[in-house]
């Protein structure tokens, strides 16, 4: 017959076990499963402790996880990123993979760039223009040169215009005709430089 002291000790042990392992007896250490089985089966207080622990286990099981749809999209993105990245600095042969590769971010980034520059990109360039494996074709070099040229012309025009303005001030005491001639000469110089560049 179990004395009250023994029972208290077993209840305390049971409480310690469920605090660590929860209410599922399959998760308890084998020794405790054997030692406490009879107590749980025949003692109301022990049975209540286990019921409470099982209720908490069930609550924990409703903790949110990613939805299946989100999980599927994530899986697709991971595989796409791996295929795009290649391996060890090299590239994965497209012949080795039948996996769909959406590469959404890079396509979007390239499209934004193309819209900003008013360019119509060929399909392959749309994917790789801003990607890690981007290769520059002749048309891309041409675009870059034209853009650089434009910037150069603008910068030059600003400097020359500044020079012309300065010369106007230094010639403040000269006649109006002289000043006008200088300004006209400056405009012609600008035009000549722009023509040369273009």
């Amino acid at each position: 017959m179990t004395t009250s002291g023994q029972k208290r000790s077993e209840i305390e042990r049971l409480q310690a076990v469920v605090d660590v392992h929860g209410g599922d007896r399959e998760r308890w250490p084998a020794a405790d499963r054997l030692a406490l089985g009879a107590l749980v089966a025949h003692d109301d207080e022990a049975a209540a402790i286990v019921r409470e622990a099982l209720a908490l286990d069930r609550l924990l099981n409703v903790a949110p996880a990613l939805s299946p749809e989100r999980e599927a999209r994530l899986a697709q993105r991971i595989v796409a990123a791996a295929v795009k990245e290649g391996r060890w600095g090299g590239e994965t042969s497209s012949a080795q993979s039948s996996v769909a590769v959406p590469q959404r971010q890079h396509i979007e980034a390239a499209e934004v760039g193309a819209t900003a520059t008013g360019l119509k990109l060929p399909p392959r360039a749309r994917v790789h223009l801003w990607g890690r494996r981007a290769t520059q074709g002749p048309w891309q070099s041409a675009v870059m040169m034209v853009l650089a040229l434009g910037v150069g012309v603008l910068a030059g025009a600003t400097l020359l215009a500044g020079d012309a303005a300065n010369s106007t001030f230094t010639l403040a005491d000269a006649s109006e005709d002289v000043v006008l001639q200088q300004l006209v000469a400056g405009d012609e110089t600008l035009d000549a430089i722009a023509e040369d560049l273009l």
């Binding site: 999980e71 899986a75 595989v79 791996a82 042969s93 080795q96 993979s97 996996v99």
Partner: peptide, 28 residues
């Protein structure tokens, strides 16, 4: 370099791995 094999591994483990991450971080 077989990406299909990698895709199978991803599909097999993404649920369990993301569940651990989700429960630890509390943010999808």
């Amino acid at each position: 370099g077989d990406a299909d094999a990698f895709a199978l591994l991803v599909n097999r483990h993404v649920g369990a791995v993301s569940a651990v991450a989700r429960r630890l971080l509390g943010d999808d």
